[in-house]
Structure formats: structure tokens, C-alpha cells
């Protein structure tokens, strides 16, 4: 088990290095930071001094090594746009994105899984058909459209919920949370639905398909033939067997929720990492962009590791080193 984790972490290193290389390369190919930092009027001497200060006159590999070394320590330099350390900027924005992603993921799971189980068990019922039609909407409508529609209905027409921002937040150390104030919670509702709806419908359809598959298996038939109550058959035997593919997809989708909250954050002017990223793209604020890229890669790599560990928890066939069968 321990060896497995070490092995996975070692495998993750080349991935992270490759991403680091890409985010480093952005500095060289996207815009000229020197020109951006100097502004309109400068002398040749000022320019050379800046190039030297920034270490841009050194060979590529030395620059990359320096960059990687700094990145490991969480140093990504100053934002061109805001002239503040990138790590600090991301640190400020991360709680907003993580809270939003958490709410969206909880919503997607807490609603998507039961809906999937229900539509799998009662596939011909009226409600199942309704859920399936509804899920088509969720899968096919683009996120920005859903967000704008929700704003139109709940913020503009009904006036129940705010249309933008996080509401009031409470500072817990470096973490700013919206969970502790009423306006913070209200502000979370629309963005969470917008961000989570696609995942919700995806999870629902996946769980449904897996349930239909599993309910046809011999061990479910045998569980029924043993006279087990429906609850035990459906939730004990059937649902657990759908979990491996569901965990895989949910893991990847959770990464996607964090990484691609950009659209939702833009629509709701949510002060998270995604909004920071999109604003940085607008002015070619490369330190922020490259740090964001690395962070997202790290999120995906970590989630994949957790997903692999969950497989072990769910499926005994993957565990090795236990007593061998009488073959």
C-alpha cells in the first residue's frame, strides 16, 4: 500500500515537470514581460538592467531550474498587473473557488447519485422520464447560459438571490469563508447550481447506466433469490458495485470543477482563482497564468491519487498480498 503511494507520487513527478515546462515556456513565447514592465518610455540601459535583474540573460535551462526551484517553494514572482506576489493573490482567491467547488460537488453528488439510483431502479416511471429529460438539459446547455438564465429568474425577476459576488465573508486566519453569513450562503446558491448542474446530470446518467448494468448481473439475481430485502439488494449489493466507475468520473469531474470554474466565476463575478486567471489572460499576466496552470495540474494529480486509493477501499479484488485462493 505504502509502496503503491510512493510509486504513484514518483509517476506524478514527470507529469508535473512537463506542466512546469509548459508554464515556464509561456514566459518566453507569450508577450514580452520586459516591454510590459517598462511601459512607454525607457532607455536602453534601463532595459538591459531589467533584463539582467530578472535573470532573462541566463541560459534557458538555468532559467527553468530557477523557475522550478521557486515553484516548489510556492514562489511564482510578482503579478505584472497587480505588482503583488502571485502566491499571495492565489492564496486570497483560493478559498472562494474551493468553497464554490465544494458546494457544487456536494450538490452534484447528493442529488445526482440518488437520482441515478432511482432512474436505474424504476426506469419506466414517470418521474424517471422527467429526470432523464431534465438531465439532457443539464448536459447540453452551456454553463454560461445556465448561469445567465438563473440570474435572470432568481436575481432579476424574483429578486431572491444576489446576481454577483460572494456576499459578506468572515476571515478565519488566512481563509475567508462565505459559509458563516446568511448573505454569503445566499450568494453561493446560484453559482453552485450553475457549476454543479453539468456534473449532477453526468453523475446521474452514469449511476443510472451502471445500475442498469449491475441489476442484470447474476449476483443481484442471487441476492434476490436469497430473499434479501430490496434495500439490501439495491443499496448494499447494487450501488456498491457501481462505485468504481462513479468514483473515477467524480474524481476527474471534481478536478474539472475546480479548474474550469472560470466560466461560472466570470458570469457571477465570483472573486475566485478562475476570475483571477481570466483577468490575467486579458493583460497577459504570465506569472499568474503559469502558477494557475501548475496549481491545476497539481489538483488533478492529487485527485487521481485519491481516486486510486479509493478503488482499493471499494474493490477487494485490487488489494494484493492477502491469502491466496485454493487454486
Amino acid at each position: 500500500m505504502f509502496a503503491f503511494i510512493i510509486n504513484r507520487i514518483l509517476q506524478a513527478i514527470p507529469v508535473m515537470l512537463a506542466v512546469a515546462l509548459i508554464s515556464f515556456a509561456m514566459f518566453a513565447y507569450v508577450g514580452d514581460p520586459v516591454a510590459i514592465m517598462l511601459g512607454q518610455d525607457f532607455t536602453e540601459a534601463q532595459r538591459d538592467a531589467l533584463v539582467h535583474d530578472l535573470g532573462l540573460d541566463q541560459p534557458f535551462w538555468v532559467q527553468f531550474a530557477t523557475f522550478t526551484g521557486h515553484a516548489i517553494r510556492g514562489e511564482f514572482g510578482l503579478s505584472y498587473r497587480l505588482s503583488r506576489p502571485v502566491a499571495e493573490l492565489i492564496g486570497e482567491r483560493a478559498p472562494a473557488t474551493l468553497e464554490l467547488a465544494f458546494c457544487a460537488a456536494v450538490l452534484a453528488l447528493a442529488v445526482g447519485v440518488p437520482m441515478g439510483v432511482y432512474t436505474g431502479l424504476y426506469r419506466n416511471s414517470w418521474l424517471s422520464r422527467f429526470f432523464l429529460t431534465f438531465s439532457l438539459v443539464g448536459v447540453s446547455l452551456p454553463t454560461f447560459l445556465i448561469g445567465i438564465l438563473l440570474i435572470l429568474v432568481f436575481a432579476v425577476w424574483l429578486g431572491w438571490l444576489p446576481s454577483f459576488g460572494r456576499g459578506d465573508t468572515v476571515q478565519l486566519g488566512w481563509w475567508s469563508t462565505g459559509f458563516l453569513t446568511w448573505s454569503g450562503i445566499k450568494a453561493l446558491i446560484l453559482p453552485s447550481i450553475t457549476l454543479g448542474l453539468f456534473q449532477l446530470t453526468l453523475i446521474m446518467r452514469l449511476v443510472r447506466a451502471e445500475m442498469l448494468e449491475v441489476l442484470r448481473t447474476d449476483y443481484i439475481k442471487f441476492a434476490r433469490a436469497r430473499g434479501l430485502p430490496n434495500r439490501a439488494v439495491h443499496f448494499g449489493h447494487a450501488l456498491k458495485n457501481t462505485l468504481v466507475p462513479v468514483i473515477t468520473i467524480v474524481g476527474l469531474q471534481l478536478g474539472a470543477i475546480i479548474a474550469f470554474a472560470i466560466v461560472t466565476e466570470t458570469v457571477f463575478q465570483w472573486p475566485g482563482m478562475g476570475l483571477l486567471f481570466i483577468q490575467s489572460v486579458g493583460v497577459a499576466d504570465i506569472p499568474v497564468m503559469s502558477a494557475y496552470l501548475l496549481l491545476i495540474a497539481l489538483v488533478f494529480v492529487s485527485i487521481n491519487l485519491i481516486v486510486d486509493l479509493l478503488y482499493y477501499a471499494v474493490d477487494p479484488r485490487l488489494r494484493i498480498g492477502r491469502g491466496k485462493g485454493g487454486h
Binding site: D218, Y219, F222, N241
Partner: peptide, 9 residues
């Protein structure tokens, strides 16, 4: 091979 639930002892 298929009548026992693989996930339970």
C-alpha cells in the same frame, strides 16, 4: 464465478 458479489466477503 458470477453469483457471488465480488465486493463482499
Amino acid at each position: 464465478l458470477t453469483t457471488l458479489n465480488p465486493l463482499y466477503t
